[in-house]
Design a protein around this nucleic acid. Structure first.
Length: 823
RNA sequence: GCGGGCGUGGCGGAAUUGGCAGACGCGCUAGACUUAGGAUCUAGUGAUUUUAUCGUGGGGGUUCAAGUCCCUUCGCCCGCACCA
């Protein structure tokens, strides 16, 4: 019989579907396991990255189930977002229609890959029954002061016609469409993620099962820096400007101040001054710079004197205030103290504008001179020119100076974060409407919980021009105030899709709940996610937001966990010819064509075998053939040997040498594959299964059919099929049936190895002389180091080699090697 | 600049605790079966001047023993970045 992958895959996929084979319920008698893969955006078709992501997740889910865990393995759709709306603009199809059609197609593709999802738990963020609770989340944040509206200078993508969160601007470009992002002064909704900056940072330490890379990316993104805020008086006025500095120890070295050109006080400071015209020209120039140019390290530092002087609060010195392109309004206070001697940027700026450079920290034992400096000195040293702090180590002085400033009321200790609040409003249609109205009398009013959802209207037009479609839909916009019943206008912005995906893993625990997003009871059973799997591109955005939501929900008593994802695996990309598969390069291999040509099992096997999960994987057509060949080899083995397969246990005490070899190979294989699955080393697990299959072929070759040991053949075939089943579920289920079994492999216990089969009487050990291998010999496995030494020294070849030399030392490692050190 | 990672045959990769470097697969070579082979099976396949020597980016070190530990250096990839 030939391996008919097509018929087999269709047969079992139908069987699983008809029997709801992967539906799961809470079961207090079993340990639970939550295996989750990042849900896809329904673009229309699966790509190889999806296949890889979901193949890894499926192996984990199936393996854990076989090991007796009650496994939650759900799938859904991150289905709000711009492509649907862009398609609507282009072809006039409503975003909803486009989205549901794509979901149907992709669900079908997932099913053809045989993934073990509980489809009863499927969620789609664009469905009313889901986004109603996304709106509920907004309300919970709003009620607790964590959602607020403010006017600010925000990122604006001219192509997407919407604002973007900081996290969605990559190198000054829109994360989605790569257009250059501009700035706009708009009133927008924010989530106060900065309130959680400290906890989001501190709890990174608790994420033991996360890759260091992701943890360090989040740490950098949150960007904590410790220092002080210091108040400087504006000369000739009562007003003060506050600066943030991480180096209060250099305060005596401040020789000028710099301010962001966008700073709100600039206008007042320069008005009427002789420098006004020059300053205004400079502000215009900086405004005209692109975000990328502005924030690039290569951009030359430029500035202009404001005509204003400041007073150093600690030395009383009068110093000039400049505007400069290297100071940013959105970090710290937008005002920086210039310490030319001890900060490289300040050094360059001071050199350019001939500002004084004053050393206040000397490298220990040196006497540096200002005029000799070619770069700033930023390392540790001894204080000088710093009044009462002279002679101290600068680290000690730093603390003392903060204390001094706090005492005098001129400054205080301050921790600053790079993290900004999360801008969540989007001027687009296809998203969850922000559940807020603006009432003439009551002002901003949140929609009460029991009136959710705020439905997305369907009678909207997509012109791609001007404002958001919702703002032009009068039926939607004109409403009544839930508080006073008077006239009110709805918020026309929708929420960033990352809001929807910040809680979907909770919804899977209780997907049909129509009263609440989820019940505490259900999330208490299933959470945390034991294994989360997805691309590293979500290292900051999604993973940070999801952690934030979990903490907010924890604080409000809705969940018991403070971190949602116990273990995280970031899988590598799928490449072809060394570069990322993309339409423009023309190196795309579609999952469909591979399934068509070789079947889903081959696709899964190849993708898991070709590289470890975290590493990039280069697609290789001939290696795919190799995977297909291996499945055929397994198929033939079962096909030819199944009639000899006995059901009983192998009597390990009564085997000949050939039989022992196979018995050993099978049990060693189970041991190795189990260990490899436990550490997600699927490529080596597969190679071990291949070795087991090779051992079976060797046995088959060496023994005549009439002498087959039926129990042994049965053990080998069953073990191979069981070990392969999480990886290639269709062919193994068929083979399982051929071997006379009827149960679903998914529910069959994972094979156990027999410790006794692994016991060997003799082992091969290496004999080294001075660390170089000189011979190998078979010795009794239980020989102790002393015994091994005696055997080795009695070996003729060794005797000859060490003849006339003095044996200094002999090291013997049981069952491994003997090293004889001679002189 | 800061942070994370990587560097092993012709290729993908293995070596989990310092203990036989190159498992397994791809490719290649030969043989068997065959009218035929792009099927299948078997054997071989790091290099070289092949009783042996060399070999895990380079240099140095620790050790009886180093791909693995330490120091140093080069190259590549990813993330952040005029962050005060």
């Amino acid at each position: 019989m030939k391996y008919d992958f097509k018929g087999i895959e269709e047969k079992w996929q139908k069987n699983w579907e008809d029997n709801k084979a992967f539906a799961i319920k809470e079961n207090p008698d079993k340990p639970k396991y939550y295996a989750l893969e990042m849900f896809p955006y329904p673009s229309g078709n699966l790509h190889m990255g999806h296949v890889r992501n979901y193949s890894i997740g499926d192996v984990v889910a199936r393996y854990k189930t076989m090991q007796g865990f009650n496994v939650l393995h759900p799938m859904g759709w991150d289905s709000f977002g711009l492509p649907a709306e862009n398609a609507a603009i282009k072809n006039g199809t409503p975003p909803a229609d486009w989205t549901w059609k794509n979901i149907d197609n992709m669900r079908d593709q997932l099913k053809r890959l045989g993934f073990s999802y509980d489809w009863d738990r499927e969620v789609a963020t664009a469905k009313e029954e889901y986004y109603k609770f996304t709106q509920w989340m907004f309300l919970k944040l709003f009620e607790n002061g964590l959602a607020y509206k403010k006017k600010s200078f925000v990122n604006w993508c001219p192509s997407c016609q919407t604002v973007l969160a900081n996290e969605q601007v990559v190198n000054g470009k829109c994360e989605r469409c790569k257009s250059e992002v501009g700035k706009k002064d708009l009133e927008q909704w924010f989530f106060k993620i900065t309130d959680y900056a400290d906890r989001l940072l501190a709890d990174i330490d608790k994420l033991k099962g996360w890759p260091d890379k992701v943890k360090s990316m989040q740490t950098n993104w949150i960007g904590k820096s410790e220092g002080a805020e210091v108040k400087f008086k504006i000369d000739g006025t009562d007003k003060e400007l506050t600066v943030f500095t991480t180096r209060p120890d250099t305060i005596y070295g401040v020789s000028y101040m710099v301010m962001a050109p966008e700073h709100p006080i600039v206008d007042e400071l320069i008005s009427g001054k002789p420098e006004e015209a020059e300053c205004r020209a400079f502000i215009e120039k900086v405004r005209g710079m692109s975000e990328i140019a502005r924030s690039s390290t290569d951009t030359e530092k430029e500035g202009v004197f404001t005509g204003t002087y400041m007073i150093n609060p600690i030395s009383g010195e009068k110093i000039p205030l400049y505007l400069a392109n290297y100071v940013f309004l959105d970090y710290g206070t937008g005002v920086v103290m210039g310490v030319a001697a001890h900060d490289q940027r300040d050094f360059e700026f001071a050199k350019k504008y001939n500002l004084p450079i004053r050393i206040v920290i000397q490298p220990e034992g040196q006497n540096m001179k200002e005029e000799d400096m070619t770069e700033a000195f930023a390392a540790e040293g001894i204080m000088e020119n710093s009044g009462e702090f002279n002679g101290m180590n600068n680290r000690d002085a730093l603390k003392k100076i903060i204390a001094y400033m706090e005492e005098k009321g001129i400054g205080e200790r301050k921790i600053n974060f790079r993290l900004r609040d999360w801008l969540i409003s989007r001027q687009r249609y296809w998203g969850a409407p922000i559940p807020v109205v603006y009432c003439e009398k009551c002002g901003t009013v949140a929609i009460p919980e029991d009136q959710l959802p705020v439905r997305l209207p369907e009678n909207v037009e997509f012109t791609g021009q001007g404002k958001s479609p919702l703002s032009e839909c009068e039926d939607f916009m004109n409403t009544t105030c839930p508080k006073c019943g008077g006239k009110a206008v709805r918020e026309s912005d929708t929420m960033d899709t990352f809001v929807c995906s910040s809680w979907y893993f909770l919804r899977y625990c209780d997907p049909k709940n129509d009263k609440m997003p989820f019940s505490k009871e259900k999330t208490d059973y299933w959470m945390n996610v034991d294994q989360y799997i997805g691309g590293v591109e979500h290292a900051i955005l999604h993973l940070l937001y999801a952690r934030f939501f979990t903490k907010v929900l924890y604080d409000q008593g809705y969940v018991s966990c403070q971190e949602p994802f116990e273990n995280l695996l970031t899988q590598g990309m799928v490449l072809k010819d060394g570069s990322k598969m993309s339409k423009s390069v023309g190196n795309v291999v579609s999952p469909e064509e591979i399934i068509e040509k070789y079947g889903a099992d081959t696709a899964r096997l190849f993708i898991l075998f070709a590289a470890p999960p975290e590493r990039d994987l280069d697609w290789n057509d001939t290696a795919v053939e190799g995977a297909y060949r291996f499945l055929n080899r397994v198929w033939r083995a079962v096909d030819e040997l199944s009639e000899y397969a006995g059901g009983g246990a192998v009597d390990g005490t009564n085997l000949n040498e050939t039989e022992k070899k196979l018995h050993f190979a099978v049990n060693a294989g189970i041991k190795k594959v189990t260990e490899d699955f436990d550490r997600f080393s699927f490529n080596t697990a597969i190679s071990s299964i291949m070795e087991t299959v090779n051992a079976l072929y060797q046995y088959k070759d060496a023994v005549n059919a009439e002498n087959y040991n039926k129990e042994l053949i049965g053990e080998a075939l069953r073990s191979i099929v069981l070990m392969l089943s999480p990886i290639v579920p269709h062919i193994t289920q068929e083979l399982w049936e051929i071997l006379g079994n009827s149960e679903n492999l998914f529910d069959t216990p994972w094979p156990k190895f027999d410790e006794r089969a692994l016991v060997v009487s003799e082992v091969e050990v290496v004999v080294q002389i001075n660390g170089k291998i000189r011979d190998k010999m078979m010795i009794s496995a239980d020989l102790d180091p002393k015994g091994m030494q005696d055997v080795a020294l009695a070996n003729d070849k060794i005797k000859e080699l060490i003849e006339g030399k003095q044996v200094v030392k002999v090291i013997a490692v049981p069952q491994k090697l003997i090293n004889i050190v001679v002189k």
